[in-house]
Design a protein around this nucleic acid. Structure first.
Lengths: 186, 186, 186, 186
DNA sequence: TATGAATGAGGTTTCATTCAT
DNA sequence: AATGAATGAAACCTCATTCAT
């Protein structure tokens, strides 16, 4: 059996993708605190399989959103190349907000202090904070926004403003984030 | 007979205050979802006592924060009498934020969609939304902030920005709320 | 104060009757397992007052139904004087059934094996079993019913047939008790 | 592959039988209202296991008694083939009574008005009422018993007469049910 | 490697009963 | 003597997580 392993790997990868799709759907439907059993049921696998692939819930959340976080990370420099810093910042924040408000419960999870979410925090910050810092710095240097804004604080504010936005018709996070950005402008 | 049944009453009232203090402490320590058993233990009473005084969790939360909410409600008009609308707004928001960030988990509870918190939402909005609207309106009329801001949305943004602020050294909700207010100014 | 005591007694008796009325109403509404608190609320007294007057639930049940049990006990001989034994038996059973089916939960309580109801069983049997035996014996002697029926067993059957009769539109205990009596006839 | 997944299945089935045995024993000892924890303890399993197999208490009760109910349902036609209707009816009722009096608390549960037992009532009636009706009808047609007896009422009477029979040495439900049947005879 | 049965801690709520006032 | 606040044992049900198969 010369290709026993490769095939297994392909299988495993396909399996993992099934898991991630199921988890994404479950997160959308019931938030990132959805019972593991529900995710397993959606994926058509046993709960043990979820745990095998993603020992902690944070691992699963990270995996589910990895592509979109990576895309966001890459979008920052790209936007800066094609736009003025302030426009780039605005558009990047827009994308970030789009991401957060459409993922039911994700913003809340990101702010959660509950143990077990540290890895999640860390991952998001590792990937996005430098990008955001670059955008802020560029806008400051261009004289388009005031200086002195801490990037972590700014990102946390964005995240916070997105909490629960998808479940509240009377609240449009984008509008308030627009006000926040206006407050940064010189 | 002004104090016909003074003893029971006095006791019960003292006890209720003990309960409220214990609940406040428990909320600070573990958020408003803290198990009833924990609150009872802090108060040194049985769980039944909590349920007797506060049939639902929302009742308890409202009672715990009633004084401070009332104070906030009264502070709005008072500030408007002594300051320009924009200063009054800023100072009122400062007080609101002080309140929210020092009550661990309160901001989160206020944004929570989970059933059983409706009464809590309703109470906070009933008392504070009109006050906030008055402040915003005055500032708009004075030409100090832009018009078109929805009061509910604004308050929700304030609340959101306070979520988790007390547990995160790197995040100062006041600073970001300052930026938000700056974004409203003409 | 020469009549201090008598007045107190009158008060206490009036109070006790209030309790019994309230208990009777509560039993009708919610069965004899109704929470003590409900009875106290109906009576407009504290729960402690119930316990003072009727230390156990059985005491209360006995007191509530004492008058009607006594009436039943007295009805037996009276019926025998005016009717043939078989008619007397039938009419007495009718009265017993009327009593049992209109007291929600009483028949069930009488059959209940749960501790604390022994006094209740004992009281009912003490008062009614001899009466019932007299009626059965007379009917046997008159050759109107078969001999050999154990009185306790017969009464228990009557009681059992009444269980739940008031809550089930499709079940008429009187009809089945009629069949049972028919089964005894020679 | 007739036994594709034999192991789990076999285990689970054995386990389920253990549960049913434990539940049956617990029902005998403490009635069908016995705490789930007690059943779990008897079975040597966690409470969750009970809930997994039998989401509601009615499910568990039905499962515990299913075999015997089915046997009773099948016994009716079989008896009619080999006996006169009246003998068949008597023997079937004997079997029903044997079943009920040996299951402590079952008869009581069947008469219980408490919510959550509807499914139980429904199951017993679905299976046994048609059988009983067939037996009664046959006996009526044969002129062996009087007509006009409602099957539901008759079954309920049987059930009622069995309540508490196992816990009372002085009460023999069979004897009284014999009298009831005698009352039906022409 | 995958399964999902089993575990059991953890939260809620209800009431019989006691006892300080 | 009356009150009703307080107690706390029980019962329920739900998952996160483990582990035998």
């Amino acid at each position: 059996m010369p290709d026993a392993r490769p095939r297994k790997r392909a299988d495993a990868r396909r399996n993992e993708q099934t898991l991630l799709d199921a988890a994404a759907a479950a997160f959308v439907a019931s938030g990132v605190d959805v019972p593991v059993r529900d995710i397993a049921a959606r994926a058509g696998v046993g709960m043990g399989t979820i745990y095998r692939h993603f020992p902690t819930r944070a691992d699963l959340i990270i995996a589910v959103y990895r592509h979109q976080v990576e895309a966001l990370a890459e979008a920052g420099p790209a936007l800066l190349e094609r736009h003025s810093p302030s426009v780039a910042l605005t558009q990047w924040v827009d994308q970030l907000v789009d991401f957060l408000v459409t993922k039911h419960g994700l913003a809340a999870a990101l702010q959660s202090e509950s143990a077990g979410f540290e890895a999640l925090h860390a991952y998001f910050l590792d990937r996005l904070l430098p990008v955001c810092a670059q955008l802020l710095d560029a806008a400051v240097e261009a004289g388009e926004i005031i200086s002195g804004t801490d990037t972590y604080e700014f990102m946390r504010a964005i995240g916070n403003l997105c909490v629960g936005a998808d479940a509240d018709d009377r609240y449009d996070a984008r509008r308030m984030i627009g006000v926040l950005l206006a407050g940064l402008r010189t």
